[in-house]
Amino acid sequence: MSAQANAETANHHGPGTGTLEHVCVVHALKPDRGIGVTAIDKRAVPGPVKVGKIGLYADVQADRVHHGGFDQAVYAYSEAEAQRWALELVREIPAGYFGENLRVSSRATTDAIVGERWRIGRDVVVEVTLPRTPCSTFARHVREDDWVARFTERGDVGCYLRVVRVGKIRAGDSIEVVSRPAHGVSVRDVFTGPTPGQAQAMLDEQAATGVPLPEKILAKLRQLGFAE
């Protein structure tokens, strides 16, 4: 049995489940002096929403280089992380306010393992790929001083997802981890900078399974001198 198959068998029930609390799509494009327009203003929507390979139907990726494409098709943020910000900022952080497509509970996003796969509802399967990197557009949207630095320091950045199997999702769907790589490197680890041991573990698993790491992670490993 392959390492990936072992992980799927071992983790089918092991890592626990979560709940999709809200599904969010763009409410309106906002003018932004940095990039022209931004699709960061997302709001929760009722009913089933189709999920395709490049994201949710009725959603928009205004900047597919930095916030879109297959490896960043969907952005998830946890309710617990949002509530920590709500307490600090002394205001509500409604679903979609951070530009997320999925607001989830009882499911780690920043501490999810890179490459782990979630089944959402009956049909949709997504794969954890990358951390969110805060930018000046995000700061202007939130309207907080030094937001990029504060968000970076906290490190609760959420995770991007690649769509493995398309289908429909809706608020209230269960989220089940159906596979998890053995390397154990989290989205938070990638965001803060992996150790040499973590970098090597990811590269070793890539070589063993033939499943490529997201190109942005490989570029970061090359930048840090861990990969050619």
Rank of each mutant, 00 (worst) to 15 (best):
S2C: 03
S2D: 08
E8K: 08
A10I: 07
G16R: 02
G16V: 03
G18T: 04
G18C: 01
E21N: 07
V23S: 07
P31E: 10
G34L: 13
G34R: 13
V37G: 02
T38R: 06
A39L: 04
A44E: 07
P46C: 08
G47W: 08
K50A: 08
V51W: 02
G52W: 10
K53N: 11
I54V: 14
I54Y: 15
L56K: 02
Y57E: 11
Y57H: 09
Q61S: 15
H66Y: 15
H67G: 07
G68W: 14
F70K: 13
A76H: 02
S78P: 00
R84F: 11
L89G: 02
R91P: 00
I93F: 03
P94L: 05
F98N: 01
R103W: 01
S105N: 06
S106E: 13
S106F: 12
R107G: 03
A108T: 03
A108I: 02
V114K: 05
E116P: 00
R119A: 02
V124H: 08
E127L: 06
E127I: 01
E127W: 01
L130Y: 09
P131K: 08
P134I: 03
C135M: 05
F138H: 04
R140Y: 09
H141I: 00
V142F: 05
V142M: 09
R143S: 11
D145S: 12
A149L: 04
R150Y: 01
F151H: 00
R154W: 05
R154H: 08
G155H: 06
G155V: 00
V157L: 08
V157M: 08
V157R: 07
R162D: 13
V164H: 03
V164W: 04
V166Y: 02
V166K: 05
G167Q: 03
I169C: 01
R170I: 02
G172F: 02
E176K: 10
V178L: 05
V178S: 05
V178P: 00
R180N: 03
P181M: 11
H183W: 10
S186W: 12
D189W: 09
V190I: 15
T192A: 14
P194M: 13
P194T: 11
T195Y: 12
P196V: 08
G197S: 15
Q198M: 14
Q198K: 13
A201S: 12
L203I: 05
A208K: 06
A208V: 09
G210M: 13
V211L: 15
V211S: 14
P212V: 09
L213F: 08
K216R: 15
I217P: 01
L218G: 09
A219I: 08
R222L: 06
F226T: 10
E228M: 08
